[in-house]
């Protein structure tokens, strides 16, 4: 019946925040050096995903949490991607992709 309450050390939390600050700086920095299309989008989203995963894992403690809560989070992302992916099947492949009226 034991539940493990994970307690992070203050040092660890500061470390997590510092890594997030650094990533924020990097993502702004790469817009200055103008990476060509489409890699600029990939890099921007990639950094955002890394930042989000750091927050989820170490601020929201999902790293130490029950598997079902992890599953819930994964499921929400999966269904979000489903919503986008299937809708793009339509909007990207319309005969006239620009609404003409």
């Amino acid at each position: 019946m034991s539940v493990h309450h994970h307690i992070s050390s203050a040092k660890f939390l500061w470390g997590v925040a510092t890594s997030l600050f650094i990533l924020t700086f990097i993502t702004v920095f790469v817009t200055w050096i103008h990476i060509p299309e489409p890699w600029n989008v990939v890099v921007a989203i990639g950094i955002a995903v890394i930042k989000a995963l750091i927050v989820v894992a170490f601020f929201m403690n999902l790293w130490w949490d029950s598997k079902f809560n992890v599953l819930l989070f994964v499921m929400s992302i999966a269904f979000f991607l489903l919503l986008i992916g299937i809708t793009l099947l339509d909007t990207l492949y319309r005969v006239d992709p620009v609404p003409s009226f």
Partner: peptide, 21 residues
């Protein structure tokens, strides 16, 4: 948990809205 999620949403909004070059 709620507050961290609000943070995460902003983490995505920032590059998607402000950082388009």
């Amino acid at each position: 948990l709620y507050w961290h999620l609000v943070d995460i949403i902003w983490i995505f909004l920032f590059p998607l809205l402000y950082l388009i070059d």
